[in-house]
Amino acid sequence: MTPRFKPGDRVRVRADSPPGHIRTPKYVQGKTGEVAGIHGAFRNPETLAYGRDGLPKQFLYVVRFDERDLWQQYRGSPRDTLLVDVYEHWLDPA
């Protein structure tokens, strides 16, 4: 099992709201960021939540966004970033 993305890759978070338990916040959906790191593979909490085994495991990435790309009105420094943990099945190459 190898990760689909590597640090530095540009990725877009899928914009999707399937019914049920999801672990990808709405505010990064549809946004483009950069893979900052790979945390490893974990059982999928979106199926674990329903008493299933969470397999196959999903790679979990930490994805970096410029705050200004997330919020048009961002008031801080242009260097400020937001890092969020996103599972592989939520990411597409950008």
């Binding site: 916040p25 909490p45 008031r75 801080g76 420094s77 400020d80 943990d85």
Partner: peptide
């Protein structure tokens, strides 16, 4: 959305040249 504003409410004012990184811990980390 506004990390610097929220930190200021906690009494922590950061210089403009400090890079702020918000970590959203959404999953298994």
């Amino acid at each position: 959305v506004d990390p610097r504003g929220v930190l200021k409410e906690f009494g922590l004012e950061l210089d403009a040249n400090v890079e702020v990184r918000v970590l959203d811990s959404t999953a298994d980390m």
